[in-house]
Design a protein around this nucleic acid. Structure first.
Lengths: 220, 220
DNA sequence: GAATGAATTAATCAAATGTTTAATTATTTT
DNA sequence: AAAATAATTAAACATTTGATTAATTCATTC
């Protein structure tokens, strides 16, 4: 029944090494990524993806079989990309704890200024999908078994920072860097900020947050 | 055409003063609230609301005319409720700046432990709907013209805290209190936390966040 | 207690939406 | 160049889904 689709799948496997992003399959994925990121799975129409790609609706199922399968691919790639951008920092054995904080905040904020829809997309869809995705990308080990976390625990032991649950630390770091992007419509509304104003504030935070985090770690 | 519905609306206006939450209209709203909060507008099916209410689907339209109108009511009430819980604190002229911080954090976290779906719901739907909602509930004035903000600016002038954009302060406060709830699936997954573990961490944060915020305000 | 209006339901509609089919065009293979 | 395979499209299908209609039950009023 799906013989020709299987073949298409094979074509993809072959082509993906040689053909650039302008292949039909990549064009569909790019359009799908944009729309899924902006509207989420439930509010996205396959017809809209096809229209934005500039192809016939049937081609979407020809290449990806279903909306769900296409979504799963986009979701996985998105989470991998999100993780990739900080993976290196977390396990760099050569940099100090303080330097890692700065590097992580800088990486996150740069990424989010460029792609501000990603965090709300991930958090919304992660709630529907269970945590099998978290397992699939191995986020847990990358973060919780990282050199970064080891350094945190050592600093606690050495009495350099207050003894709090490591998760509080992770939450504070993520909160201050990521939340403003999740809440940007509200923040821009409340503060009467333009997109440019907002991005300027976020750029300021690249230097402010590390400072704040260090102050807060020593508190009390 | 909708004569009987108009009448139903009138009935509601009359009844709402005397009839308890067990009226059909309230039962529909309660079910709608639960499902909208959990799945958002796009993923919610009117049939699911009807089923959860235990009524015939047609009654939903009889009372509320459309899914959108029902949603608008829930959305407005949700935002008002969310705001209501901190409105008083913000403009209490009798309490200190530090006390307000503690009160706000406590109010927020108590509310979110009880209704953890609310922030992601609001932030997701606020992105679709423009900011006309923000205007409708007058959030801007309550927050930005508050006694709380005045106290912040005075403390900056007096040199008691570092001179940062007030929006940074608001973002930090909201981030640290609200973001963990928005990201709870990820946080619980990463930290291998049960719901109980998570709630305990959040309860700890009621005392930790005010401490952190104060430390961070003086940083550098 | 008949009459009137409100509340509720079963059934149906119409549009939206994900998916498939069958045919056509383009490309590759022999 | 013919044959075979892949890519693409127009059209249609089958469900889903929000909404409506027409009838029925329930409650209130006179």
């Amino acid at each position: 029944m799906f013989a020709y689709i299987t073949t298409a799948g094979q074509m993809k496997a072959n082509k993906s090494l040689t053909v650039p992003d302008s292949s039909t399959e990549e064009k569909i994925k790019n359009a799908a990524r944009r729309i899924f990121h902006k509207k989420g799975f439930a509010a996205t129409r396959t017809r809209d993806i096809a229209a934005e790609t500039g192809i016939n609706l049937a081609l979407l199922n020809y290449y990806f079989r279903s909306k769900q399968k296409l979504f799963d691919i986009i979701m996985l790639e998105t989470m991998q990309g999100f993780l990739q951008s900080i993976k290196g920092v977390f396990n760099d054995e050569l940099t100090s704890f303080d330097h890692k904080i700065t590097a992580i905040v800088n990486n996150y904020i740069d990424l989010l200024i460029a792609q501000p829809d990603i965090p709300l997309f991930i958090l919304s869809e992660l709630k529907t999908n269970p945590q099998d995705l978290l397992g699939k990308i191995g986020m847990k080990d990358i973060l919780m078994k990282s050199h970064f976390l080891k350094q945190f625990k050592e600093a606690v032991k050495a009495g350099k920072i207050a003894p709090i649950h490591p998760m509080h630390f992770i939450m504070n770091l993520m909160s201050m860097a990521v939340f403003p992007f999740v809440a940007s419509p509200m923040i821009m509304g409340l503060g009467e900020l333009s997109q440019k104003d907002f991005n300027e504030l976020m750029t300021q935070r690249k230097v402010l947050i590390p400072k704040w985090i260090k102050a807060l770690l020593k508190a009390k």
